[in-house]
Design a protein around this nucleic acid. Sequence first.
DNA 1: GCGACAG
DNA 2: ATCTTGTCGC
Length: 227
Amino acid sequence: MAAPSAEERRRLYSLQDEIASKIVLEDRFSEEVVAGVDQAFISREDGREMVVSGAVALDPSLSLISKSWAVLETSFPYLPGLLSFREGPAAVEAIRRLEAKPTILFVDGCGVNHPRRAGLASVIGVTLEIPTAGVSKNVLCGTFDPPDRVGDASPLVYEGERVGYVLLSKKRCRPIVVAPGTGVSVESALDLARRYLRDHKLPEPCFAAHQHVNDVKSRILSGEFSF
DNA sequence: GCGACAG
DNA sequence: ATCTTGTCGC
């Protein structure tokens, strides 16, 4: 995967600035269709790398409404701060293939807790005009005081702004990070993450999407699915 | 210059 | 993310 030139990077940064300018940090979501999306990768023998995205749509009681997936050839390397250019296209396509349009979508990755306020969750949300929340297992940027009791959360601050929360979601697990993508306030991002937590480290929509995409990946590798 | 760095 | 078996703990 060719690393982008300094000039190309500047162009991508301006694209992120454009996305960031369209982010809404106010609540504009409902919970009729609660979805989750996640990506996995496949390295083929011929050297090509594929991105597999899996999306799941659940109703308020977490019953499955619909699943979808999409596969595209990778066209960008992994670079901190530029993840959306690697995983965004496949994720957007998978979400478009869901039977029901999500009214709130959980994305594996950052939201506004990003150097240019344009993490994957924000990019997907602005692109598809869907309220989104970003959930990540590691901090890309920002500082915080580690929460020490299950259920506790500490503000994640970046450049003097509260961009998300670090939440201790489960015993014997490292805390997770939750932040608005767009169409969700910082407080609601935390509330949503807490309310959709069940018996796993990640909120159920994220967990379900992760299981789904890995299932799709294994079926592709076994030849059951083709594209 | 050095370290950090979503997935 | 991915490479990978067993293993410790609830």
